[in-house]
């Protein structure tokens, strides 16, 4: 238990700092790299939560594919690769206020609802096999819908971005 808590604390600190750097850094490429840190931290959290399959998927899809896409997007739009002075717009202080208030509200709600609820010890861990069975039995319709969505996104992205 202690080890888990220590791991969690380290992860949380790293993720929090990296997340803040994602939205404050002056360098687009650095932001993407900090994003990798956050995403990897999330994957580690999944391991901590005994969700092995999601952790692997997180690494493959988020870190492998999505961050790569974002870097390509940065390159193709010739965003300033080095330091850029104005990456923030003029409402950033309002945004800070709104975000902090939102955090306050969320925190209050969570503290109120799950103040000292513990995760069940020795809970029944859902293995990859269980996830697979569930997807192809109970949730097969949403699964098919998602596949159609991905196809639509594929076609849509090609149609939107191609030169004609």
């Amino acid at each position: 238990m202690v080890a888990q808590n220590v791991v969690f604390g380290v992860l949380a600190a790293a993720m929090g700092l990296a997340a803040i750097r994602v939205v404050t850094t002056k360098n687009v490429v650095h932001a993407a790299l900090y994003l990798v840190v956050v995403l990897a931290g999330v994957a580690a959290l999944y391991i901590l939560l005994a969700a092995e399959f999601i952790a692997v998927v997180q690494v493959i899809i988020y870190i492998g594919a999505i961050v790569l896409l974002i870097l390509f997007g940065t390159m193709l739009t010739r965003a300033p690769i080095g330091r850029a002075s104005d990456l923030d717009n003029d409402q950033r202080w309002l945004a800070v206020v709104v975000s902090l208030l939102l955090l306050g509200v969320l925190g209050a709600v969570l503290a109120d609802a799950y103040g000292s609820t513990k995760l069940p010890k020795g809970a029944q861990v859902q293995r990859t096999g269980d996830v697979g069975l569930s997807i192809f039995q109970t949730y097969v319709i949403p699964f098919e819908v998602v596949s159609v969505l991905l196809l639509a996104a594929l076609v849509g992205a090609v149609v939107i971005a191609r030169r004609d």
Binding site: N89, Q91, L94, A95, V98, S99, L101, L102, G104, V105, L106, A108, V109, D112
Partner: peptide, 24 residues
């Protein structure tokens, strides 16, 4: 768009905050 998003989240904060104040 971002200003609209600001209004949106601002409204969420106000509504959520009201809810919190009244329920907790």
């Amino acid at each position: 768009v971002q200003q609209y998003a600001l209004f949106l989240f601002g409204a969420v904060v106000v509504l959520g905050g009201t809810l919190v104040l009244f329920t907790t």
